[in-house]
């Protein structure tokens, strides 16, 4: 750990990966490979955002779906009801989610471990139940995003998924930038200190509540941005598609599998987990037999037992040995 300085090797590897990712849409045919990568980027971003509060500050949130849903609903409601441009809706969603995060952050500011996890679930369930009954935003029927002309300004594309791909890649890079800034700043050190010892950090004069709140709000803002993207991409949303516990769990899983508490960890986690879950869903989930979810559940157990520190730590260990 410590202040991040990039080695030449790191810079060249990142540049090579970026070039490959930029060329990917030109190399593949059909919409499924594009959809798959978009979902990988989306969940990578959600995992990176979770990491800011979970991985660094030790607040294991199992309620990220609430922020995701708030982001998706804010922009979509503003668009359907007042014709507000989705890019403005994106920022508005981020702000609303950050405010909601502050609201929930106050009662949770002193909760630790399991208590925090349960509180985050309780919060997300309240939001889900409320949205399921809130007539203004379509209640259980949800919202359909009105069709508009294809343009970057309208955040809507019909002929190809490629623009969505590049936008989501841009969002992911942005969230990685924010995460990396947080971890190398003074705040990052404070957050790690709070994670290692809540009381010790307090005694040392760190304003624990303030920094925990900041971490939750930043995390919520980024998560809500991903939510707006999702709404503009799928063009339909209801509480059962964006606000449910399985989404929150998948976000935690992406971060844990990759390595909670490392900037790149969730990206690796998403790159491994999302193809598995999307492919099993498409290949096995259509009959509603539950087989795809049985495999998914087994996968969670295997990861927890055999790879609880995440793949990123494992890769670093190998890298060190080579040198």
């Amino acid at each position: 750990m410590g202040v991040r300085t990039f080695t030449k090797r790191q810079v060249s590897v990142s540049a090579a990966v970026l070039v490959l990712l930029a060329l990917y849409p030109l190399a593949v045919r059909g919409s499924f490979p594009m959809h798959l990568m978009i979902m990988v980027f989306l969940f990578a971003m959600l995992g990176v955002s979770w990491n800011i509060m979970g991985g660094y500050a030790g607040m294991f949130s199992f309620g990220q779906a609430a922020f995701f849903g708030i982001g998706a609903y804010t922009s979509s409601f503003l668009l359907t009801a007042y014709h507000v441009n989705p890019w403005i809706g994106l920022l508005a969603g981020g702000v609303v989610a950050a405010l909601a995060a502050a609201l929930i952050g106050i009662p949770c500011s002193n909760l630790r471990g399991h208590y925090f996890a349960i509180a985050s679930i309780a919060f997300a369930e309240i939001v889900r139940i409320h949205f399921n009954n809130w007539k203004l935003i379509g209640a259980a029927e949800g919202l359909t995003i009105p069709m508009q002309d294809e343009s970057l300004r309208n955040f809507m594309f019909h002929s190809s998924k490629a623009p969505y791909y590049y936008i989501m890649l841009g969002f992911l890079i942005l969230s990685l930038g924010v995460c990396s800034w947080v971890t190398t700043s003074r705040m990052g050190f404070y957050l790690r200190a709070i994670k290692e010892g809540h009381d010790v950090a307090k005694v040392l004069g760190i304003d624990v509540v303030r920094y925990r709140m900041a971490a939750i709000m930043i995390s919520a803002f980024l998560t809500a941005m991903a939510g707006t993207f999702y709404a503009q991409y799928i063009l339909y949303l209801d509480p059962e598609s964006v606000l449910i516990l399985p989404i929150s769990v998948q976000i935690v899983l992406v971060a844990m599998l990759g390595g909670a508490g490392s900037v790149m960890g969730p990206v690796i986690g998403a790159a491994i987990l999302l193809p598995i879950s999307e492919v099993t869903r498409v290949k096995l989930g259509f009959k509603g037999s539950g087989l795809d979810m049985i495999i998914y559940g087994t996968l969670i157990m295997l990861i927890s037992v055999y790879q609880p520190q995440g793949v990123w730590g494992f890769l670093q260990k190998i890298g060190r040995k080579k040198r």
């Binding site: 844990m256 539950g290 979810m293």
Partner: peptide, 24 residues
Amino acid sequence: KGPGLAQLVVTFGVSIFLANLAVM
């Protein structure tokens, strides 16, 4: 003996597994 996060997540896996086994 693993990290706290794995202890929280593992039983989610058990939950998803059992509920869907019942569906199947």
